[in-house]
Simulated scan of single mutants.
Amino acid sequence: MAVHHPATIVPTKLELLRAWVPRQPWAGGVTPDVLTQLGAYRFDDPDGEVGIETHLLGTASGQVLQVPLTYRGAPREGADATLVTTMTHTTLGDRWIYDACHDPVYPAVLAEVVRTAGREAELFTATPDGLVPNPLTTHVRGSGGGPGALGAPVEVRQRGADTRIRAGSTTLVLHRRPDRGASEPGPSPTGPSLTGTWPGQDDPVLLVSVEER
């Protein structure tokens, strides 16, 4: 369960994404001001300490970019190189935003969602009268099967439009551009995976693949 706390945040999520995404090798030279928010999905941190949210962004050419982030209430030791930015949140205080692929919480939770055929976290808004459920427009589903518990990632590499996160004998392949359009279709599931839909994308698209050796 994810809880949204009404607040003013500086920078906004779209602002920080527009500043950071175009500088990444998988973004394909996208222009910052044309990035739009298509959807987002969250996972639950079992320890309740780290926010895990994946953003789906649209480009002017119709491509989709997949950007997972983690939100922390304090800096993660030794992770300065993967810090996206800091954020001021008027309810939660200062937040440290990281590239989730390098944050050990993200791949561990992602692998568990795939293994258990899990789904996105439910989202609620905190109000004076209690938690109010938010309707979700982006939905993901794990296939079932795949790895058990993962250790800390030992290697994160970029290969074309894919970010490969290796932990032991398991590699999670995050497809940064999951829906490449009619002229360049995205990959199809061939094993344990995570697929998703969002507004304007009614057919499930492969978001993450799992490879084991």
Rank of each mutant, 00 (worst) to 15 (best):
D80K: 08
P107H: 00
L136E: 12
T82Y: 13
R141S: 14
L123D: 12
G145F: 05
Y98F: 14
A100I: 08
V114S: 01
E77P: 11
G144Q: 06
R141W: 12
R72M: 07
C101S: 13
T85R: 03
T127N: 09
T82F: 12
H89I: 12
T127A: 03
T90H: 06
R141K: 11
L150E: 02
T116S: 11
A100V: 14
A79S: 12
L110W: 02
L83P: 14
V114D: 02
P75K: 08
Y98H: 06
R72G: 06
W96K: 05
G93K: 08
T116E: 10
T88Y: 02
L123F: 03
A74V: 13
P128A: 04
E77A: 12
T85W: 04
N134D: 15
D94L: 09
L123W: 03
L92P: 04
L83C: 13
I97G: 00
V113G: 02
Y98E: 04
R76K: 10
D94V: 15
P107W: 01
P147A: 02
V132L: 14
V132E: 12
G118I: 04
W96G: 09
T85P: 10
D80Y: 04
R72F: 05
P75S: 07
P147C: 05
V113K: 00
D94F: 03
M87S: 08
L150P: 01
W96I: 12
E122S: 13
A117M: 07
R95V: 15
A152K: 13
G151V: 14
A111R: 00
T91E: 09
V105E: 02
H89V: 11
E122H: 10
R141V: 13
D129A: 14
D99V: 10
G73A: 10
A121H: 04
L92F: 01
I97K: 00
G142W: 00
A74P: 10
F124N: 11
G142N: 03
T86K: 02
L92Y: 04
L83D: 09
Y106M: 08
T138R: 03
A74I: 06
E77Q: 14
G78M: 03
V84G: 01
T138L: 03
G145P: 13
P104E: 04
H89G: 08
T91H: 10
R72H: 15
P133N: 07
R115L: 08
V105L: 03
N134K: 09
I97P: 02
R95E: 13
L123H: 11
G142T: 07
G130K: 04
N134M: 08
E112I: 02
T88M: 04
T90M: 03
V114A: 00
G146P: 02
G78Y: 08
S143C: 09
V114K: 00
A108E: 13
D103R: 00
L131R: 03
A111S: 13
L92W: 01
R95Y: 06
A121N: 06
I97Y: 02
A121P: 10
D99A: 12
H102F: 15
A79Y: 11
A121R: 00
T90P: 09
T86E: 11
G142Q: 04
P75H: 06
G73M: 07
V114H: 00
G151K: 06
M87K: 10
M87H: 04
